[in-house]
Nucleic acid binder design. Structure first.
Length: 271
DNA sequence: CTTATGGCCTGTCAGC
DNA sequence: TGCTGACAGGCCATAA
């Protein structure tokens, strides 16, 4: 579900609600697993710890304590919210010393929770294969150009491959390629240096705008205060199949499954 | 190494 | 009003 802007907004909203500095008194597990089993020692390791920071790496949200980190992935439908009353699909509830509680809810259960020693985070099985953050200095037009040479798969798949660059999922891949005027089906290896440069600029711009707009809500996404995003009102191609292109006013937006997911583009102004 | 595919789950919506 | 099938913002294992 959530891509980088959505996860970033969950992080911001959790910070805003004062979850940093909260000491965990009790961990209430309502089931044994999500995408993978919860570590058996998860409650024992969390109990007595205090959240020192909440961070994001790629689409992972990480609650850091001095010793351990609770790493979470929202999958398609995961959400964190201050616990008030039990809802269907609540899977874990953290009880804090202040009396406040925090619940993780995930209907489809594509999400993930794991406990990792904070010092080992970057080397963990979840984070070690990840590519650069889109805002990292190392992510440049030149690095995209070099990293795509000779690849035959579609550029859209490359963008969504978290080993290449993180945080871009199905929606923002279509939007960024539209902005850069590149057809999603084009072989990654055929992207020119100039196009790679444009792509980086637009990925950053779109992600930045989407973060500021509170992310995109198609259906499920809410931040931890229950607020929907607004960026879905500014999609230029995503979910617009059959509509006139908003840029060239001539092409009709097409859609087709590329890299395993529905993809949208303008056949007239994307090459 | 790269790329394609299937599977994990539930909920919702369109079409019958 | 059901029922069925397709589809949904992600990721991983597997196979070719």
């Amino acid at each position: 579900m959530p891509e980088l802007p959505e996860v970033e907004n969950v992080k911001i909203s959790l910070e805003k609600q004062g979850f940093i500095g909260q000491e965990i008194l009790k961990v209430e597990l309502l089931r044994a697993d999500l995408r993978v089993p919860f570590p058996k020692d998860l409650p024992r390791k969390l109990k007595g710890q205090t959240f020192a920071a909440i961070s994001r790496r790629a689409k992972y949200l990480i609650f850091e304590t001095e010793k351990y980190s609770l790493l979470s992935h929202l999958g398609m439908t995961g959400s964190w919210r201050p616990f008030d009353k039990k809802l269907k699909h609540d899977h874990i509830i953290l009880h804090f010393k202040s009396g406040v509680k925090l619940a993780f809810n995930d209907p489809r259960r594509f999400g993930l929770l794991d406990m990792i020693d904070t010092k080992d985070l970057a080397r963990s099985r979840w984070l070690k294969h990840l590519g650069p953050e889109p805002f990292a200095e190392s992510f440049t037009g030149e690095s995209v150009f070099q990293g795509t040479r000779k690849l035959k798969g579609p550029i859209k798949g490359w963008l969504m491959d978290q080993r290449r660059v993180v945080g871009v999922g199905n929606i923002y891949a279509s939007e960024a390629l539209f902005a850069a005027k590149i057809k999603p089906s084009r072989a990654a290896g055929k992207i020119t240096r100039q196009e790679a440069e444009l792509l980086v600029v637009h990925i950053r711009r779109i992600l930045t705008d989407a973060i500021e707009a509170g992310g995109s809500t198609i259906r499920d996404y809410r931040n931890s205060e229950g607020k929907s995003g607004e960026f879905q009102t500014r999609f230029l191609v995503y979910d617009r199949a059959g509509e006139k292109c908003l840029r060239c006013k001539d092409g009709v937006i097409k859609s087709k499954v590329i890299a395993g997911r529905n993809t949208f583009w303008c056949p007239k102004c994307q090459r």
